[in-house]
Write a protein that binds this DNA or RNA. Structure first.
Lengths: 166, 166
DNA sequence: TTTAATTTTCAATAATGTTTGAAAGTTATG
DNA sequence: CATAACTTTCAAACATTATTGAAAATTAAA
């Protein structure tokens, strides 16, 4: 396969994967580009490669910085800003986990905490309390797993899982 | 808190959580409703509760069946179809993991398998090969973890993780 | 300080995704 | 078989989200 074809297919795939992971398509594509870049890229490099507008490139680069998935790189003698990303998949995964936990899991746990205290003793309310309490328990387990995962900045997580699942 | 308020907030939250999990809002809300129902619900029950059209209710119930997140229940003497869901969060999570793996992880692994074979020995191509190969390795690890998780239909997964993360 | 390079913002537009409602299709019952 | 109960489909309307491009703001160099 030609490099240019491979590259294109990879960027496209990463983009559509991103959109099912709470990261919008363009954002994921920019990230894909940074992953395979041999050196930091400027906004213009990205506009050219992905054929997107300046505004779009800028907004999504901001978002990537915000998610902790890209960082600014200052190149001596250059006026422009350049961007790069950490290329270790584990670091990437931990970063995504961290952000999504903050945006999604934490709020739902807070909500379940509240609503599971609803008072009453008829069938419906009892069931509601049971279900929301169960969900809360589950969410909290998930939370602690994710916390551990985030804190470990090496591969130990998968190393252990590897042993379990072998 | 009043039951009706708690219920409403829970359904809303579940809906917005769903949308960041690759499940559309209404689909997630229907699922939320089934979770707290004391008995199977008909399409009309759902239309009434969520104030949605028949078509919408029908489409999203289909989708839930498709994802394995709801099942038809036949009630003797009733002409209508009724629906219910498994209320164990672990079963639910395993089901979601299974579907998403099929829809997302499997295709990306296939793609990475292909593109990481790109030939050439200049800097760019070497880097591309390295990154895509690393990603593939990571994706395969994730795949095997998910497979184990899916197959275990009890709590052993979190029990073990509990020990690790304590 | 002035100028030129660069980044940011945002209203308008385009693209995508969701919902409706009514008509067509299906199935069970008398 | 005819009818009524129920389910499915789908084009059009609506809603949401993403993108553009040009003007405004910022920053660095002369």
């Amino acid at each position: 396969m030609e490099y240019s074809e491979a590259k294109q297919r990879y960027i496209e795939a990463w983009g559509s994967l991103g959109s099912s992971w709470g990261v919008n398509r363009t954002m994921a594509q920019i990230h894909a580009l940074l992953m395979i870049a041999t050196m930091p890229l400027s906004t213009e490099d990205i506009m050219d490669e992905l054929k997107i507008s300046r505004g779009n490139a800028n907004m999504n680069l901001r978002a990537l910085l915000d998610w902790g998935l890209a960082k600014k790189v200052l190149i001596p003698g250059e006026r422009k800003e350049f961007f790069s990303t950490d290329k270790d998949p584990m670091v990437l995964a931990a970063q995504v986990a961290k952000e999504r936990k903050k945006r999604e899991l934490d709020p739902i746990i807070r909500l379940l905490d509240e609503v599971s205290t609803v008072q009453g003793d008829d069938e419906q309310v009892k069931e509601f309390r049971k279900v929301t309490t169960d969900l809360k328990g589950f969410a909290k387990q998930a939370d602690s797993v994710i916390n551990t995962f985030i804190q470990s900045n090496s591969n130990w997580f998968f190393k252990i899982l590897g042993k379990i699942t072998r």
